[in-house]
Design a protein around this nucleic acid. Structure first.
Lengths: 335, 335
DNA sequence: TCACACCGAGAGAGCGCTCTCAATGGGCCT
DNA sequence: AGGCCCATTGAGAGCGCTCTCTCGGTGTGA
């Protein structure tokens, strides 16, 4: 930096001002400094900068997955579910204009300690926390750290924290309505894990709406949000209730598996049985027939999370607030 | 830190020594300091530390994907292909004991500039670079930066850089051998993209071995390593060559798609046509029938990449070296 | 013409840590 | 017993940057 200052014939302070875009610099001097920077190939030292600004200009995207008793590692699940790619894309797009970097940290409950230590050390200015598991203690721990944070869904315990969510119940209702409108009269659902709020809310919303329309009870089977789980649950569901003609599956990945099971069982979709998914992820387009599904604007939600987080970082005392997005129905070929 | 020093009745220097595990500290004093640290809840400031040590204790995992003309974003591809989850898991496991953090940076060619800037700024001590695309300029750019780096595959241009790879040709040979041993006599392959070394090498190895066994020409169709691509290519291949009885698909994801196509076409697997994949990823277990495939020890390879990188970081002048892993055949039900 | 205000640039003090170098003290050798 | 050496600890100088405070210079109004 001293080199640059000397090359431009100014003081370090002025070089700093130019780099940080301070308005009070003469245009000519600014230009000289910029040329000097280009000539010397100078790159600011981030450590020194954050030492004084107490900003790292990066935020963590912590993806907290419960450890389930299956043979797939949580990393594998995270990198296989298109949902997380959309989250990353959305957050990145919002952060990039502010030149803030995203550090992706996948975790399961076994290394919460590591994550907390990382956050405490001040590597990042704030946290985007993707946590859906009800028993997950990470939201509370992060909250107690006092570091700015935004959570991806309504927290299960009453923590004063900002969050962004989609109206899950409304989404389920859209699915139910559509199935009824098509003429389906024997509805069923493969729910998500019931220890996850989104799983619970979608099931609740689906049942609640149907009961107002004269369907007091609906065959339900609990799934795990994976493709293989969807396939297995569909098989089991149809074995128990062979005459189902409308199926709501709580996410697209399971719906993809369910469609495969239905095909194996010789059911035509949507003629014999109509299927509606949830998410509108890329998996919906991998399905045959193409999946009718409830669209969750995941990218926009992640971007909003990032915006809210940046606001919290900029204004430390800011009160938590929540933002709810509306889902919409995307009609394709499966229903 | 001063607080801790005062509480323990020692100097800052001694506190620093305790934190960094210097051996020359009296056991009693060490203990006092540790208690003081616990009492005060002291956490070292990483920025100040890296300012003086010139180490960030984190490395970047840069996943560079070519931008292909499809409707899925590269982020979606990265977060959908199980391969990257395995890479992350392997690298993490090797880095964790050294308390080094992994910053995952997905990128396509449009933001190489951003990535390079990030690396130049000294956020990380080194780079694990996952880059397979032949025209990818990132390996060269990273190399020119002079920052320690390890690449995931044999670089296409002759760059003096360490890399870790699997013996692709041998893997393809294992597949070919297995198909012949089963009695298949009309073989074909769905290759990977031919502008990617792994795609090319697998095709080459497959053909080269078969020609030594009296099969001078093998029907080949170029795929794109995606599930949908595998399905489409399998359809096309079988339309042109209806009597194929043995198929080598250059990765598991495409093989999954191919199996789906074969099922649609009414071919029984493996009785009518045997299928061998490549990777042994979790997708192999999503297949019906379970996929016979060439196992690539991706986790181990990623861990090795991390080890080599740490060696480079510890010894700046170290000469580049390459490590090649052996693939193995995993026999399941599809062949 | 003078005083005042305001704008732009420089000087210098840290940010919190590590690490070298010097100092102190105890043990051991002669 | 004296001296020397090694083992520990303390003191203090930076690491590279930002930012406040100060100062010089120019413009404006009376």
């Amino acid at each position: 930096m001293d080199q640059v200052a000397e090359a431009a014939g100014v003081s370090r302070a002025t070089v700093s001002r130019v780099i940080n875009g301070a308005p009070s610099v003469d245009a000519k001097i600014r230009e000289m400094v910029q040329r000097a920077i280009a000539d010397t190939g100078y790159v600011p030292n981030v450590a020194a900068r954050s030492l004084v600004t107490r900003r790292s200009n990066s935020v963590a995207l912590v993806i907290s997955e419960p450890d389930r008793p299956d043979n797939h590692s949580f990393l594998n699940r995270i990198f296989t579910d298109p949902y997380f790619g959309r989250i990353t894309a959305g957050a990145t797009s919002a952060l990039r204009p502010h030149d803030i970097h995203l550090v992706v940290i996948p975790t399961d409950s076994t290394d919460h300690h590591q994550v907390v230590r990382y956050l405490r050390q001040g590597h990042v200015d704030g946290v985007l926390l993707i946590s859906s598991h009800e028993q997950d203690t990470l939201p509370r721990q992060v909250h107690d750290l006092g570091i700015p944070a935004v959570v991806s869904a309504r927290p299960t315990s009453p923590i004063a924290v900002s969050y962004v969510d989609v109206d899950q119940r409304l989404g389920a209702r859209l699915a139910a309505e559509h199935l009824l409108n098509r003429g389906c009269r024997t509805l069923a659902t493969i729910s998500g894990p019931l220890d996850i709020p989104s799983g619970l809310d979608r099931l609740d919303g689906f049942r609640a709406f149907l009961s107002t329309r004269g369907f007091p009870s609906v065959p339900t089977i609990e799934g795990d949000f994976t493709r293989a789980g969807g396939e297995a649950m569909a098989r089991r569901l149809l074995a128990q209730h062979p005459n189902i003609d409308g199926l709501f599956v709580a996410n697209d990945l399971m719906a993809e598996g369910a469609l495969r099971a239905l095909q194996d069982l010789g059911r035509r979709v949507p003629d014999d049985i109509a299927v509606v998914g949830f998410d509108d992820s890329s998996a919906a387009l991998d399905c045959r027939p193409l999946l009718t599904t409830v669209r969750q604007p995941v990218e926009e939600m992640a971007a909003e999370m990032a915006e809210v987080l940046m606001a919290h970082i900029a204004t430390p005392g800011r009160l938590p607030r929540s933002v709810t997005f509306q889902p919409s129905l995307v009609i394709r070929n499966s229903a």
